[in-house]
Design a protein around this nucleic acid. Sequence first.
RNA 1: GGGCGUGUAGCUCAAUGGUAGAGCAGUGGCCUUUUAAGCCAUUGGUUCAGGGUUCGAGCCCCUGCACGCUCACCA
Length: 508
Amino acid sequence: MLQDDFSELENIRLEKMLRMRAEGIEPYPTSTKRNASTAEAVRAFETAEAANSSEEVKAVLAGRLRAIRNMGKLSFAHIEDRDGKVQLLFRVDELGEELLQTFARDFDLGDFIEAQGTMFRTRRGEVTLLVKSFRMLAKALLQLPADKDEVVDGKTIRHAALTDPETRFRQRYVDLAVNPETREVFRIRTAAVSALRSFLDGMGFMEVETPILQPIYGGAAARPFVTHHNELDQDLYLRISFELYLKRLIVGGLERVYEIGRDFRNEGVSYKHNPEFTQLEFYMAYADYRDIMEITEQMVSSVAQKVLGTQIIHFDGHEINLAPPWKRLEIRQGLLDQTGIDISQHKTAAELSAVLREKGIQHNPNAPRGKMIGDMMEQFLEPLLIQPTFLYDYPRDISPLAKNKPGDPQTVERFEGFVAGMELCNAFTELNDPLEQEKRFLELGRAYAEGDEERHPMDEDYLRALAYGMPPTGGFGMGIDRFAMLLTGHHNIREVILFPPLRDTNQG
RNA sequence: GGGCGUGUAGCUCAAUGGUAGAGCAGUGGCCUUUUAAGCCAUUGGUUCAGGGUUCGAGCCCCUGCACGCUCACCA
């Protein structure tokens, strides 16, 4: 039982709760008469004050007790709700000795309280609720980590705030309850997703939902999670992308579709990788990757403006300006500038490997040409891309779903958007030639058969869909978690995921 | 998976191999009407777990667990 593990401190709270109940006071009532948030009440009072109104501002507030200062004949307290904090004053001549004693006796930090009264300003200048009546809304049996605040010259100084990452992530409810900045991170994340939706909705996109459990996974290079459907006696994969399903919808004539949802990749974790992550993908008929670049910079900058009130963000010590236009850097040119190697002059893996060796550049000589170029990009280009930059024109053999650049069989119309040296999004002109697509799948299959860990199954139905005809289409994908990292300035993906995965433990 | 690091009271942190501590919170007291992280007193520990070395281990060694950073794979 829960209470078997209770400490002395927790048993004291438990006894208070039981005593209240024995006295006929319900410590967990079903409803409250709250009629304003703390911020609303303060605002209402300040408005009335500014208008020199003589009318009392009454309010019923509710929140978690964050500070209590009992002083004999009066008590001060602070309650906190989602919007902020407000001070409560309990006075003996308002409440009588007995009620005031009740407050001091029954209420602890962390309890939820309802207080009804009138707003006023103390001699110290703090807008405060003078309490006429109050009531327990929910007794807290466990003690929240201490984080007493001290306000010095208008600045809040935290004392002993909860910082232990394990506790913060395993018991996110405590982190949220105690650390306002954590609440702010998730407010920003939610607002960003909402702003992305309205941006796309405003462009006539249709939000759709496609299968998460898929018989054949595809649309990205990643190992999937496998699960099993008992009734069908069939293995299913948790999707690694939405791509192939969304493009089927373009074949179907929906023209502009997007999905925001979870992808699952059975890979390692890092500060920018989580096994499940939230992805935005959109597909737009009659657009190519140039159009998508413009939409991207427009979308990202306008969402930042809407959510943060600015297009300037701070990340990893950098000040980054998201305002369009973003820099455009052709991969071939970028690598030429950084390494002196013109990849267009080295058309096979062997040739490229030779020149890399000549230049003394570390590489895997057995890798395919595209992979080699990808490694070069990672090494020489990506770390430089602090300000928003579109890297464009990718090697064909690492882009199996993108359309060739006219007249250049080794290059495709694809770009990735980088911010703060981190890949934020990936987009291309979609390959809509069914026979070419089949060829690409087959090439992939071969590459993987030759020793790669990932095996990519052929999606016959997707090829059939393409064979019915897909209009020229631009497609786009962006990791929402990474976007949230940028907007909140966090350098770790777990900080922007409410319940990041942690290893299971029996210690509770 | 590899490397490095961390694990001490509810929280934040101390402690040459020699009596486990502080602040906050908790408990008790002070409180006489707009303040105070107030003041005084006080409770609280399987030092992550299990072995080992030692007269003696929070500290040294081994094993395990969890977490962090980092490398690899990937977005």
